[in-house]
Each structure stands twice: as C-alpha cells, then as structure tokens.
Design a protein around this nucleic acid. Structure first.
Lengths: 135, 135
DNA sequence: GACATCCGCAACTACGGAAGTTACGAGAAA
DNA sequence: TTTCTCGTAACTTCCGTAGTTGCGGATGTC
C-alpha cells in the first residue's frame, strides 16, 4: 500500500459487504483479504462506523456489517467519512502579504469549487453500483 | 508554513514579480520576505524555471526574473510546474481483487475529471490578474 | 462462572516526504 | 582576484501514516 490507502481499504471493504450484506466480517478476515493489519482495518472502518455507514458488533460471532442498504451508501459518504479533503483547509487568519493572500484565495476558491463538483459526482453513485465495472 | 507550501511560495514570488517585472530578486530577498530559506526558494523556483516561467541569472547582480509577460503566465502553468496532482497517480497494474479495482477506477476517473475542470479554471486566470483581490 | 472471540484504544516503532540548514562548486560581474 | 549569485548534494528535523503489540470491555459458547 502507498497513498490514499484509507480510501482504498474503505472502498474495498464496503464493496465486498455490498455484495453480501447479511454476512458479518471480522477485522482479521478483512485485513487478511486486503493484505494489511486488523488494527489498521479497525482504524479505517471505525471512521465509517462513526459516519453511520457500518456497525460493529463485539464478542463471539461479532464483526462488521453495513449499517444500511448498500444502495443508499454513496461514494461521497465514504469520501466525507474519511476527511479526504482536497483543499489545504486554509488555517491562516494571520494578516500577511496582500499579494500572497489574493493569490491563495483565488486558488483556494477554485479548489473548493472543484471539490464540490467532485462530491456531487461521487454522491450520484452508490457502492452497490460502483462495485460493478463501469459500462 | 505548513502544507501546500510549495504552491504558496511559488504564487507569492510570482505575484510580486508580476507587479514589477523589470526587477531581479535574489533567493535571499525572496526567502526573507516569505519567511523561509534561500535554498528552499531555489528548490521551488527551480521548478518554475524548468517549466519556462522564470529565468535565473548567476553572478553579481543576478537573481530571478519572469521569463515572459505576466499576462501570459496562468495559475495552471504554476500548478502544473509543481506537479500538484490531486490524483493518486494509480501506480498499480497488479491484477488484484476485481471489486476493489472497479471501485478505485470509478473514483479515480471522477478525480481526474475534477482535476481537469480545475486546470481549466486555473488556466483562465493569469498571475497578473490574480494578484489583484477578486471583485 | 470459565472461556473464547471480537472490537476499541493506547502506545510504540518504522518509514517516507518535505522543510530547513550547511557546505561547496560553477558562473558572472566589478 | 574578489564578490555575488544560483545549483546541488548531504544532512537533520518534523510530521503523518502504516504496522505492531498489548490489554480492557463486550458478547457469545460451554
């Protein structure tokens, strides 16, 4: 794994769960299939749980399940659950050089627009649809 | 400085140069104004030089200048010169799980579309325009 | 109740990318 | 020759993330 591995792992897990929603899967099973570690799986899927996309059951025969119908979980839900923002968040507020500020502002606005457009596209496809190869 | 500092530094430098294209500036002057280091400035501006946006002159009274008219240098030129890609580059080629592949492919396509749209917007504004506060 | 099986979470190490820093060579002008 | 500047290598520091170990809490089975 390299970059965007959180998103990859999340999509991968959700994709399989969408194929068989009744089955519960343990972190160990998912980690084994994805070639990573159970704790890493719990970290990533924990975000999806916090976002209401998954439920986790403890104890014997426990594991992970979809919290709702896979048709109602969109790619945007996953993207947002993982905080995968494109924009640098613009943490300044320090009154710096006006030229720099004007330029960064312009670029930031365009990036936010691009991300909004991306989210709109992502929101149009559910994981149930997206797990099938594109036509 | 924190993140996207290369882009910030590049925009900042170009913005000032666009305001007075005749003046040459040294790495030390730029670094001082930007609150960073001359070597860092040379690293970042070196990319802009490689992209044909700046020229650097060595020796006495040397320094950095715009390589062409500031009206002809767009924000997209800067963005591309710095390799600021949104997409994870998709370095795989390994024949992995089909479900994972389908999902990643869908998201990757959408991200590339979003970036294409962003570049189109960035290409519509020159640094000469963008250095003035937006209307 | 004893035990096994899970998740949740804290703490740690390992690795990689980027900024920052120092040092030195190459080119150009006074 | 001296001085000034970029170009670049080498190094340290910092930060985020993956990976790992350990243990407590919850939930089943026996």
């Amino acid at each position: 794994m390299k970059r965007n591995s959180r998103l990859s792992l999340a999509l991968h897990s959700l994709g399989h769960m969408a194929g068989n929603p009744a089955q519960t899967r343990t972190s160990a099973q998912i980690a084994d299939h994805a070639g990573t570690n159970p704790v890493v799986v719990r970290r990533v899927l924990g975000r999806l749980r916090a976002a209401g996309l998954l439920v986790a059951e403890k104890g014997h025969a426990g594991g992970w399940r979809l919290a709702r119908d896979p048709e109602t979980i969109t790619l945007a839900d996953v993207y947002l659950a993982l905080d995968e923002r494109l924009t640098p968040e613009a943490e300044e507020a320090a009154p710096r050089c006006a030229v720099e500020h004007a330029l960064e502002r312009r670029v930031a606005v365009m990036m936010e627009e691009a991300e909004t457009a991306l989210l709109k596209r992502l929101a149009a496809i559910s994981i149930a649809e997206a797990r099938e190869p594109a036509l």
